[in-house]
Amino acid sequence: MTTDHPAQAAPGPASGLVLPQYERPAGVHPPLDSPDYRSTGLRHPKEPLVLLPHLLTEVTGPVLGDGRVTKDDADLTQWDGGEALGQRIVVRGRVLDSDGRAVPDTLVEIWQANAGGRYRHLRDQWPAPLDPHFNGVGRVVSDSLGRYEFTTIKPGAYPWKNHHNAWRPAHIHFSLFGRAFTQRLVTQMYFEDDPLFFQDPIFNSIPDEKARQGLISRFDYEATQPEWALAFSWDIVLRGSGATYFETEDVDADDE
């Protein structure tokens, strides 16, 4: 079987084997040692990281999806025989790589607090009510153009004791696999104009302003569903080869 990767000439990664190579991002991801986020203190490695070449184990990855996902997993607003409280929203976008190519057939997992900012988890004990009809878990597999879509409710902000009067801005946790071990990503999606950004050390741990803004979804009036749901769009970009490549297909057309 052939690969559709632009065979970036990887100088002899394996004798006779040409493997795709992935870019190594600099300045995009937060430093593991981010003192304003106190829990990083005892959990960041202090020894230097050792460079891992992108060999066979790194350029491959699990093919997950169909067995792990049912159609209902895309809709978080119905659970245990009833409807979740809160503002119903559609969250949608594309999974791309940094070469501009769609990442199809990849598992996208999300989890989030309810409209009142409470997680359905034993350790979340702050006095906001649990919603009996919201469990806060969603899963989809991106389609052939890399698109994903969830229906959920807008999560609330919540306090978390990192510093005095600390509140997390509203966010949805995302987990993605991409097609290779190198592309694995866990992140959070935020909402425009959240007044809590200024004091959040997790959002602000990202050193680059543009990269930070990249975690903020865009209100998408065109994707709203009349008499039903507001909509937010958010594209997720996984590591590519670093080579410039653009799809000929104009898949953004229905997106703008």
Partner: peptide
């Protein structure tokens, strides 16, 4: 990015409640 490529999405912590989603 400056050369017009899509900028990578930054990582964030999985947080304390990863068991819900993962």
């Amino acid at each position: 990015t400056s050369d017009g490529r899509p900028g990578l999405t930054a990582s964030q912590t999985v947080g304390p409640y990863l068991a819900i989603g993962l």
